[in-house]
């Protein structure tokens, strides 16, 4: 479904702040695979997701989604294949627009926007149904401005928007990091059920090792712009936080990194 081949991304090239965020990173994601991504600050997790989404061009390598080479496509064109949820709950929805208007925008992801009326009656019913599935009571507030919703509600709505039109690839960038533990758990629960229902190919970045181990069918860890751990199947199922830390320590060759990872 997704294939990343040897991508390299250098920020602030030829300056004193030059930083190579991704170093010839390759990854291939099977159809319906759900990968959790962990790594310390600056390990390249978000950069990898942004490189896939096309937020910036990569310096080397190729990004192929479902057989289509999207390396040269701008962000808005790649959006036809990709659903995204960001860390910041404010970032994924338009506060000044209504709930149904936000959904309608997402419903036309990857399509030409015509002069037909923005929301049709049958669509409204559809939005009502999918909102009901969330179980947050948002179906009663279709025309409310999204700015009035809480962070958790907005994140749940963003999730819904990312999956309303089935994406070939779902990118979740620490989407529960800004929420309180209880809300985060709820949003994670919604995430899991949506992914399961639509068999979505997913990359989920998280800071929470427990979540990373509990969710998904495969786990990768990034360190210094490279994938250093890649586990699936039985290995993944038998994983614990301790084991993961030990593995990481032996790869990075320092214990100090463990603390960094835990604290980050």
């Amino acid at each position: 479904m997704l294939e990343i081949r040897n991508i390299t991304k250098v920020f602030n090239k030829n300056t004193v702040n030059e930083k190579t965020a991704l170093k010839k990173l390759s990854l291939s994601l099977e159809d319906g695979e759900f990968i959790t991504v962990i790594g310390g600050n600056g390990s390249g997790k978000s950069t990898m997701l942004n490189a896939i989404a096309g937020v910036f061009p990569v310096d080397e390598g190729r990004v192929v989604i479902d057989g289509v080479d999207v390396t040269r496509l701008p962000e808005h064109k790649r959006a036809a294949y990709i659903g995204r949820v960001f860390q910041d709950p404010m970032m994924g929805t338009a506060a000044k627009m209504g709930i149904e208007e936000n959904l309608a925008l997402a419903f036309r992801r990857g399509q030409r926007r015509s002069l037909a009326w923005g929301i049709t009656k049958s669509e409204r019913e559809h939005y009502c149904n999918v909102l009901e599935d969330l179980g947050l009571g948002l179906e009663q507030r279709l025309t409310s401005k999204v700015g009035l919703l809480s962070g958790g509600q907005r994140q749940a709505l963003t999730l819904l928007m990312a999956t309303l039109k089935k994406p070939k690839l779902l990118l979740l960038d620490e989407h529960t990091a800004a929420l309180d533990p209880k809300t985060a758990a709820k949003v994670l629960e919604i995430t899991e059920s949506l992914i399961k229902r639509d068999k979505l190919s997913t990359l989920m970045v998280t800071h929470n090792m427990k979540d990373a181990i509990a969710l998904g069918s495969r786990l990768i860890m990034l360190y210094d712009g490279r994938i250093v751990i890649d586990l699936k199947g039985e290995e993944k199922e038998n994983l614990t936080v301790e084991k993961l830390l030990k593995m990481f320590g032996s790869i990075s060759g320092s214990d100090e990194a463990d603390d960094k990872l835990l604290l980050s």
Binding site: A79, M91, L105, R108
Partner: peptide, 19 residues
């Protein structure tokens, strides 16, 4: 609506495939 989304939240607009 896509013009309004562009002004309201440009990141969201791009993520939803709006030029």
């Amino acid at each position: 609506c896509s013009i309004r989304a562009t002004g309201a939240n440009i990141n969201m607009a791009r993520a939803q495939g709006i030029n």
